[in-house]
Computed example of a mutant assay.
Amino acid sequence: MVSGETAAVRRGRPPQTVEQAEEVRQRIIDATAAVFARSGSRGLSVASIIEQAGLARPTFYRYFPNATEPLNVVLDASNDGLVSAIATALSGSDEPVQLGIRLIDAYMDWARGHGTMLRPLFAELHDPGSPVSAYRERALDDIRALVRKAFAELGRRAPSPLDMDAALHVCEYLVYRLAIGTEPATQPDAALTAEARLVMIRVLLVTLGTRDDLAYAMELPGLIAE
């Protein structure tokens, strides 16, 4: 005779391993990123996520209480990736101009790594109704702190808040232009991306650099127009 407890175990779903549970959780997160890339946060819902993931609704709710929570995981990873990349870039040289170039390249690589998600990400940065906007200020604060730390390590006076924000906002705006000017399913034009990179570096030099930095930059091929 089978006991009631044993029968209940047999009738129920086999318990998941930790690895299986993490796989399902990641599947939900990946589906959330795909829906966000296609429709932005306004088009994000539990229904759209489970359709993308190919999962049942009860399965979703075992991992997340709503559609915003897996989006927060996606945005956390995006912010962490940006701040980490810039921290690494600013620790790779003791030459100020090269540090600035490395910072811009890290920023561009981070943006490029988002693929089609870059478009809605930047489209919603300034939308107070989007969860994306809160992450923007957090990332900017972290980047400001990293730049001030790099200046201190170089023995330089920290840039003024206005100079710092001018540099950050111009860089943000240029990537925003690249993202918005691109078809949803494609990457930004390579030539336009290269031009935007040069403009960002020049802006960084003028707002945060010194005369010596500009003199050094003049010797770098292709950076400053003849």
Rank of each mutant, 00 (worst) to 15 (best):
P70E: 01
E95D: 12
S48H: 14
Y63K: 11
I49Q: 10
G100W: 03
L99K: 11
A37D: 05
G43T: 14
R57D: 04
V74T: 04
A85F: 08
Y61L: 13
L75N: 01
W110R: 13
G100V: 00
I50V: 15
Y107H: 14
Y107S: 12
D76E: 08
N72W: 02
S45E: 09
M108A: 08
D109G: 13
V83Y: 07
T59I: 09
Q52I: 05
G43L: 10
Q52R: 15
V46K: 09
W110T: 06
S91N: 08
N72E: 12
E51Q: 15
D105W: 04
S84D: 03
G100M: 07
T88Q: 04
P70C: 04
S78E: 07
E95A: 11
N79Y: 02
R102V: 02
V73M: 05
G43N: 14
S48T: 15
D94W: 12
L71C: 09
A67S: 14
T68L: 12
Q98T: 02
E95T: 05
E69H: 05
A56G: 04
D109N: 14
F36V: 00
G54S: 07
P96M: 02
S45Y: 13
L90M: 06
S48M: 13
P65T: 12
V97M: 07
G54F: 09
L82W: 06
A111M: 09
A87Y: 09
L82M: 10
E69S: 06
P70R: 05
V46S: 03
G54H: 08
E69L: 03
N66F: 09
E95N: 12
D76W: 07
D94M: 14
A34Q: 11
P58K: 15
L71H: 11
T59P: 00
S48G: 07
A77P: 01
G40H: 14
D76T: 06
F36N: 06
L90T: 00
R38L: 02
G40S: 12
G92M: 00
S84L: 10
A77Y: 00
G40P: 00
V97A: 07
Y61S: 14
A37N: 08
Q52L: 04
Q52K: 14
S93H: 07
S41I: 01
T88W: 01
A87H: 14
I50W: 09
L75K: 05
R62I: 01
V35I: 05
F64Q: 10
A77R: 10
G43D: 11
A111R: 10
D80K: 11
L55S: 13
G92A: 07
E95K: 10
G100N: 02
A89R: 07
D76M: 08
S91A: 13
F36P: 00
P96N: 03
I104F: 03
A77W: 01
G43C: 11
A47R: 15
F36I: 01
R62F: 03
R102I: 02
A34H: 00
A106C: 04
A87D: 05
G81K: 13
L71M: 11
R42M: 05
V97S: 06
P65Y: 10
A77K: 06
A47H: 11
I86C: 00
S41Y: 10
V97F: 06
E69R: 10
A77H: 02
I101T: 03
G40D: 08
G100S: 00
